[in-house]
Structures are given as C-alpha cells and as structure tokens.
C-alpha cells in the first residue's frame, strides 16, 4: 500500500472512530462503515481501529472473521450472494447459480480476474415467498430467473462504468442506481 493511501485511510479511520465513539460497542458500526467504503477490512485498517479503541488487533480480527458481511480479504466491486436455503432451493436456485457461473466464468467463492464480481452463497435472507433471491452488495433482487441474471449483470457493468471505485455512500450508488439500471434494461428488452 502506498504511503499516501495509508495516510488517507488512517485519517478516514480516525474520523469514523470519532463519529461512532471510541468504545467497544462502536466496533461493529465502525467496521461496517469501513467495509462499505473499502469493500473489505484490511490488516492495516484492523490495526488502526484496534489502536483507536484501545483493544488488541486480534480482537478486531476475531470480529471481522465472525460475521459474513465483514471481509478480511479484498472482494469484487460487486458481491453477488445467492440464497441457497430451502425455499429458494425449491424454486430452482441451482439454475440461477449455473447461469451466474456461466455469465461470469467463475465458481462460487471466487472473484473475477478484473476484480468486478465476487460470487458467493448466502443463507436465508427472508425473501422465501419470492425466491430465488440474489443480493448484489446491499440490493436484494427477488424471483430471479436465469434470464434475469444477465440483466442484473449488465446493469452492474453499466454502474461500474460510472462508479468504478467504492465511495462513502456506496449503498446509494450500488443499491438505488442498480435498481434503476435493471429497470431500464428491462424496459428496453
């Protein structure tokens, strides 16, 4: 990591910790905000957060590795999580899974070489009446068909053209904009 980048991240962590309060209860909100902005929580970030909260870095590491939505490894710009639990399974999630693998050329658990997409399984996300459900960053899509997979990925690629990097308000970018992009794709189809 470049010294400049490191300094920038250090300042940002200082600012995030100041806002949430430098106490243990603030750890998850702090890490969630870092995850959002960076797409992962690096070793350096964990050490910095630990320093600000006055705890050992391994405490932070133990928390990051416990929760599915916090990552200690770099992920793609878009993290695609397909629900594999029973109700979505009964609605043919396997076909959606195959289509995702074919469109992206990767298997579950992998990230595309260009760093745009990570493909993962997730457990029940409470959309059981509208499966199969697919979460793209924080946006949830329901009743996803194999054809719909293509539409969603194309929308992601268009968003990527506009916002290649994660930003402070990535939820806004990836969620709101993604929904709009998918709808406009469907309108053209």
């Amino acid at each position: 990591m470049l010294v400049l980048e490191r300094e920038g991240l250090g300042r940002r962590i200082d600012e995030i910790c100041a806002r949430h309060g430098r106490n243990r209860s603030a750890l998850l909100p702090i890490l969630q905000e870092l995850q959002e902005a960076q797409g992962w929580v690096s070793d350096f970030a964990m050490q910095e957060v630990a320093r600000h909260l006055g705890i050992h870095p391994v405490e932070v590491y133990s928390v990051v590795t416990f929760y599915a939505f916090l990552n200690s490894e770099r992920k793609g710009r878009f993290v695609l999580r397909l629900c594999r639990t029973i109700s979505c399974d009964m609605r043919d999630k396997d076909r959606v899974a195959r289509q995702l693998e074919q469109e992206l050329g990767i298997a579950f658990g992998q990230t595309t070489a260009d760093g745009r997409f990570t493909l993962e399984w997730t457990n029940c996300m409470g959309m059981c009446d509208q499966g199969p459900a697919l979460m793209v960053n924080k946006q949830i899509f329901t009743q996803v068909s194999p054809q719909g997979v293509h539409t969603i990925l194309e929308a992601c690629r268009r968003i990527y053209g506009l916002y290649p990097e994660r930003s402070e308000d990535d939820a806004l970018v990836s969620a709101g904009a993604l929904q709009v992009a998918v709808e406009s794709q469907e309108a053209h189809a």
């Binding site: 106490n23 243990r24 750890l27 998850l28 969630q32 929760y67 939505f69 916090l70």
Partner: peptide, 18 residues
C-alpha cells in the same frame, strides 16, 4: 452483519457490545 446465531438474545447482546 450476517450471523444467524445473533437472533439468540445473549448472542445479540454480545454483538451489540462489539
């Protein structure tokens, strides 16, 4: 942050405490 076990009330409290 994506952990089923946090629905258990004492696990939930642990999670709230960071």
């Amino acid at each position: 942050a994506g952990a089923y076990v946090c629905g258990e009330e004492t696990a939930l409290i642990e999670s709230l405490e960071g």
